[in-house]
Design a protein around this nucleic acid. Sequence first.
DNA 1: GATGAATGAGCGTTCATTCAT
DNA 2: GATGAATGAACGCTCATTCAT
Lengths: 204, 204, 204, 204
Amino acid sequence: MTDPKGSRTKTVGSKRQRLMVATAQVVHRQGVERTTIADIARAADVPVGNVYYYFKTKDELVVAALGEHARHLRTLTDGLDRLADPRERLKGLVRAWVSQRDLAARYGCPTGTLAVELDKRDDGGLDAEAGRVIRLLLDWVEQQFRELGLADPGGLALTLVGAYQGMSLLANALRDPDVMTTQGERLLAWLDSLGGAPPAGDPA
Amino acid sequence: MTDPKGSRTKTVGSKRQRLMVATAQVVHRQGVERTTIADIARAADVPVGNVYYYFKTKDELVVAALGEHARHLRTLTDGLDRLADPRERLKGLVRAWVSQRDLAARYGCPTGTLAVELDKRDDGGLDAEAGRVIRLLLDWVEQQFRELGLADPGGLALTLVGAYQGMSLLANALRDPDVMTTQGERLLAWLDSLGGAPPAGDPA
Amino acid sequence: MTDPKGSRTKTVGSKRQRLMVATAQVVHRQGVERTTIADIARAADVPVGNVYYYFKTKDELVVAALGEHARHLRTLTDGLDRLADPRERLKGLVRAWVSQRDLAARYGCPTGTLAVELDKRDDGGLDAEAGRVIRLLLDWVEQQFRELGLADPGGLALTLVGAYQGMSLLANALRDPDVMTTQGERLLAWLDSLGGAPPAGDPA
Amino acid sequence: MTDPKGSRTKTVGSKRQRLMVATAQVVHRQGVERTTIADIARAADVPVGNVYYYFKTKDELVVAALGEHARHLRTLTDGLDRLADPRERLKGLVRAWVSQRDLAARYGCPTGTLAVELDKRDDGGLDAEAGRVIRLLLDWVEQQFRELGLADPGGLALTLVGAYQGMSLLANALRDPDVMTTQGERLLAWLDSLGGAPPAGDPA
DNA sequence: GATGAATGAGCGTTCATTCAT
DNA sequence: GATGAATGAACGCTCATTCAT
């Protein structure tokens, strides 16, 4: 009661934060339907009754989890943006995917599997929410292809991201992380083969 | 005794059959967790209590649904096997996928999305079951690549099937059937580009 | 179809009989409530749907099982009645009880435990039915005590049968057949101690 | 903070308590299998769904009911322990049994009948639980016989407790409370007849 | 008589959400 | 803001009994 308010605000913030992170993790592992509010509360170390102070419904928690995934994605692309060559950025993205191969083999892509589960519902646009996060990734990838001067960058983005979702799904269904490794190498080779000429600054 | 006995057997068979088909359809649309036995019973026009005469648990119904998907797959590949050229068979497969674009955009690949949902559970090897059906598809595709005389037919199979799962997932997440069309065309072009020389019988 | 009818009648009879015996056994082991008609049908090797041709309800099967127990009891007392001395008959009865110690330690007295379960119900006098079988035993025991010339033979019968029910229950609850052995010996000694003078043929 | 917090704790405690008491009573009257959670909830005046906040399963409720019986037993023996003479303690126990004759004639001994029902199951050691409560009674009785200086106090305890269980069962099966009275008197006389000499402090 | 199949009421249990303090 | 407790609507599953042949 005598604590400076700042700390309390921070406590509240960290509780919200903890709930978002916990939801993202637990839902990734168990799926939305098999995850109970109690599961999330336990993982976040928040009393069950208190969850509803921060999130009005379970769906709101799921939306928040998607926000977490978007944030992770942003962190990743921000790091890659520091690379000068767009092709290297894309290859860095693929390498990041491959580095998560064990998690993918066990639980699939966090955003992709969430999208699959949410797309089975008709209720309030929760399903669209997952699409939005995937769209973020598509947009960033498309931008790289555009900077490479390649034709149909949007189509290429769909191909690359689709390949990632597909290989994650197969690795998961077959419970085999090697799928991520071998298909990741294929993607790297494919990226290298695209558009022989560097897009810019090429001396004659 | 002189009645055509087939009728009774057929009645029984059709009820089991109806339940399997209904499960496959309803689960494709709603997911396993959001599908109740009552949903399935209604869709199959079977009294709720009677479902358990044919399937002891809900999980058994899901396994049966996977069996339905395997059966459909088999029907499809059997048809394609009548084509002489393995490359044409694979292209026929891709065209079959694209023809299902609206369903894919709304509910994803029946087997793939089921695999995603089942892989979130630890209990009895139900999850492996979905992997097995996907493996059937992979094996058939691999065989076609092998007949084409291409190197690493297994890796190519993973690439093709992965591309299908990925584009289905994206079409579903973005609610856009066009993804199936454009990415399908990419796959057709890719198949045509593989292994310039026909595998056999090429005159000099 | 061409069999002599006699055999079929016998088949019917043996089916009824098999159902009664199966019910008695299965109910002794599992209790009434935990025994399903399917359990009984399986144990009797009778198709489920056919059970209702012989017994209109599950309760009727339980009554029939009580009849089986009454029949067994009658067989036992008929054998003991061949002994000349009533005291020896009673001691024979006790020895018969002790010989069943392993069954008693596992499942209790068939009639006693059935009475306990049925007495928890208010519906149609099924509960009284079990009391009737126990009454048969009490009456026979009372008659032996009467022939011994002992006072209050009815009270003595309650004591002896009560001791049997009590030791069966304890052996069962403690899962210890030795209870039957040691308490049986106590009963034998007690019987020997009753009414010093033989009831008849005593020379002056 | 300054509120009498006891009230909340007491409320929680009383709800658990009410559920235990209600379970003990209802199960005594109806048996475990014929008692539904709704029955117990109604008797305890607790909403059905709330029962599971206090007890995870029906079996846990049954264990709690056995605990209630153990507690009652303890209260009874604690009272009897205030008597100086072990023989009087045992006679007091018998008189307590007889005083419950109407309940016994209607529903049998609460612990004994519960033991009978539970012993029909193989699942988790719930059956052993009932044996443990009976063992508490046996141990106390044995101690009294030991203090009386009698040989084989354990065997005597089995005899006394067995007689109680037997007469309860017969009173119940015959729906006759008089069985409790007359057999109770027999037990009192038997106790008086044991070991002519007082165990200690006998003046020469 | 014999039999597999049908039927529906009911039970134990779960869980998102709300409430009282 | 924080919290244990409360609530009730479902859901999966069982089973005695009935039905159609």
